[in-house]
């Protein structure tokens, strides 16, 4: 008598739910992007503020700050839903668990990765990047933040059952994020130097696609273990 919900409908409900919750509690998702902006602002203060040297350091500073900020944001990905039993109900909903977790990761990216990518050009200009580098940096951070969210979903799933899992989470996720860091920083450096950054951006895009296809499956397996 009741018609089952389609998987697209289920995913859109999860997105709506998470955005509604974030709207009612904005502090949570504003923290990581504020952290990112502050860390990148510390570099010109701590280092030699000469423009050419700052520019040379800008890609590394941007990406390390982005990486740390996204690990910080992972705390909010599954923890609350794990604690209040929502993830259990996801697992028992009859929908594909990996698909629902992908939807959750997507909403998490919208709330933490996207603001990061939008803030990155601002931070880059603060580090002496020319305005011409902005499109390249934006694309690199957009792709990179997606793959960081997906990698993070695996780590967040594994550390779900651990009381203070934050440090362990970063130990798990940061090594996995090295390829993203390498190609992202490379693309950013080339954009700042005015060279075409297509090659590292393609590699970054490939990593992201790889993440979209496999990370939800790994995250679903990890979360299931943590729910036991």
């Amino acid at each position: 008598m009741s018609r089952p919900a389609s998987s697209l409908r289920a995913a859109s409900l999860i997105l709506q739910r998470d955005l509604t919750l974030a709207f009612r509690r904005p502090g949570e998702w504003l923290q990581p992007v504020a952290f990112f902006l502050i860390v990148t602002m510390l570099f010109p203060l701590a280092l030699d503020p000469e423009l050419s040297r700052l520019r040379a350091l800008a890609p590394g500073a941007l990406w390390v700050a982005a990486l740390l900020s996204s690990v910080l944001a992972l705390e909010f990905l599954f923890r609350e839903d794990g604690r209040d039993g929502t993830l259990e109900q996801f697992a028992l909903s009859g929908q594909s668990f990996a698909w629902l977790l992908l939807a959750k990761t997507a909403s998490h990216w919208l709330l933490t990765g996207l603001p990061l990518a939008i803030a990155a050009p601002l931070a880059a200009v603060g580090l002496g990047a020319p305005a011409s580098a902005i499109p390249g940096i934006l694309v690199a951070l957009l792709l990179g933040s997606v793959s960081l969210s997906l990698l993070g979903a695996i780590g967040a799933g594994l550390t779900l059952g651990i009381r203070r899992g934050g440090a362990l989470l970063s130990l798990l996720v940061l090594p996995l994020a090295i390829p993203t860091l390498v190609f992202g920083a490379r693309a950013t450096a080339m954009a700042i130097q005015g060279e075409p950054a297509a090659a590292p951006l393609y590699l970054l895009a490939a990593l992201t696609v790889f993440g979209i296809t496999l990370a939800p499956l790994a995250a679903a397996a990890a979360v299931r273990i943590s729910l036991e």
């Binding site: 919900a5 409900l13 999860i14 739910r17 009859g94 929908q95 629902l100």
Partner: peptide, 13 residues
């Protein structure tokens, strides 16, 4: 009501 909409909606319309 929102809780029910988002949780029941995963299973059925």
């Amino acid at each position: 009501a929102e809780n029910l909409r988002y949780s029941v909606g995963l299973r059925r319309q």
